[in-house]
Amino acid sequence: MPTPVIELQQVTRRYDDGPPALRDASLTVLPGEAVAILGPSGSGKSTLLNLVAGLDRPDTGTVTVDGVRVDDMGEAASARLRRAKIGMVFQFFNLLDDLTVTDNVLLPAQLAGTPRAEAHRHAAELLQALGIDRHAHTYPGRLSGGERQRVAIARALMNRPPLLLADEPTGALDTASGQDVSRLLADLNADGQTLVVVTHDVGLAESCTHRTVRLTDGRITADTASRDTASRDIASHGTASADIVSEQAR
């Protein structure tokens, strides 16, 4: 079996004295998979995403990304890990408004110290591939929502990360733009990009991923292969385990 891109084992995260935002969660994502983390508000989706991205640390359990433990990393190390291995796409794009589209896309490469010419060439390729090259020198404020999200996706892919995390990527978009972004994500996955999409939009989950992990009150309650019939309700188990993933893979 190839090295999983994401591996969560018995992860629990609690904020203050409230109930755990995520409890005893185990999850494995293999290279090339497209996984939707689905659930209502407060179910623990963002917590799970933050833990994977190294933006937060679990109280118990381990989180591994592309073979590297992120749950015990320092701030600087997790920043370097994100730079190298994770591309992030946000609901509200989180583009820097005082940078042009190209400069936004270049940013991760510049932080990583990629040679200037190489970074510019790759940024141009990405903008062209995503159909926004005509906006290269435009500021994000002049773009439509869909175009901004394309820029955000280009930026996320700039350092060729093995993992693309998308947090409600169509949540701030109109239907047409949302479908456009959804197709783009599906295409990326078809090209081999591992994709984890956090959303409460079942339509998005079905359109661009082939596996759905359901979260309810911090627990993984279902882990479903959405493009075939092999699904299994794991509510009674409380976790999604690696052998389920293996089974799905088979």
Partner: peptide
């Protein structure tokens, strides 16, 4: 602060 968060999410280290 949000912009800083974006930078951090993109891999900017605390020292940077």
């Amino acid at each position: 602060v949000r912009e800083l968060g974006v930078h951090r999410a993109l891999g900017m280290t605390p020292r940077q």
